[in-house]
Write a protein that binds this DNA or RNA. Structure first.
Lengths: 153, 153
DNA sequence: CATCGGACATGATCGGGATCATGTTTCAAC
DNA sequence: GTTGAAACATGATCCCGATCATGTCCGATG
């Protein structure tokens, strides 16, 4: 049981359903922390997996727990970090509970985020829980719409 | 800006999209804490709303922040709480990213949870992001299946 | 440059679930 | 017991998005 710091690449936290299904609990990109939520857990049934060549830092849980108990400032900083993660996860759940690709994309963009460049859109499709094709179509729809608006000017 | 402790009833944390859409960020039942994720945020664009008669405790954010900075044990406990919330939110997002009512219900039940009694199923439908009708049908399907299994014995 | 793989793009088809409609059960309040 | 509201239940319809298929574009590699 360890904590992982993703330095380069991408690592995913996976859960193995007892029926064999695997699902993604967390995707951690560069600078992100993986499995923070497991620091206080005694047992976990999760595993991690890289999706590309990656560099990661590893911190053993017991050491981290000691450090948290000893260093109040660290504990506070850690709580702040978890706070951010809670918000992020809730926001994602909120988006996933919307119906329709358009609504999900809107909601995703409403976080002040920008449409990823070509090459990174499949990741977005996964994040908002739609098929890549559906996302491409929605983007194409918006492209033509904004072109129509331009023409009108 | 305050933290709410739900003693009775249910309170929901809502987000107001700038296009007028409202979505649920968190549903807090008895014993739960509402808006923990906002403790470290300077600004939030969320509001809370009760869905039934409720009793809630209120803690002003500045006071909580002071207490967290002063009391290391509290900070640690708070981190532990946030840890649980992160896991819960991620699990929900994971469920919502599954396709099909059956898969979502399976996944929800796989957490060691039990099908709620009649009267509480609409809440479950909301949580796993399906219409009540779809959930009723899925439950009915399983009922008939288990009846068939019984008859065979 | 040729090749090759992966993402982008778009058409065609199909199914699952949202939605509407209608009826039944349940339970609380009077 | 009666009434009324909300949840449970199930049928019918329809639409959106998953999926399959096909093709183009682009960047990396030899």
């Amino acid at each position: 049981m360890s904590l992982f710091l993703v330095l380069e690449g991408e690592v995913r936290l996976l859960r193995h359903q007892n029926d064999g299904q695997i699902s993604v609990l967390q995707r951690a990109g560069p600078g992100a922390v993986l499995a923070e939520a497991s620091v206080f857990a005694e047992r976990t049934h999760c595993s991690a997996r890289t999706t590309m060549r990656s560099r990661v830092g590893i911190v053993a849980m017991p050491i981290l727990r000691q450090a948290l108990a000893r260093d109040p400032a660290l504990a506070l900083a850690y709580a702040r970090h978890l706070s951010v993660e809670v918000r992020a996860a809730r926001t994602r759940a909120e988006i996933l509970s919307l119906r329709g690709v358009a609504a999900r994309l809107d909601s995703w963009l409403a976080e002040g985020r920008v449409l990823p460049p070509k090459g990174k859109r499949i990741g977005l499709a996964e994040e908002i829980g739609v098929s890549p094709e559906a996302l491409y179509r929605e983007i194409a729809k918006r492209r033509t719409k904004s072109e129509l608006r331009e023409r009108a000017s």
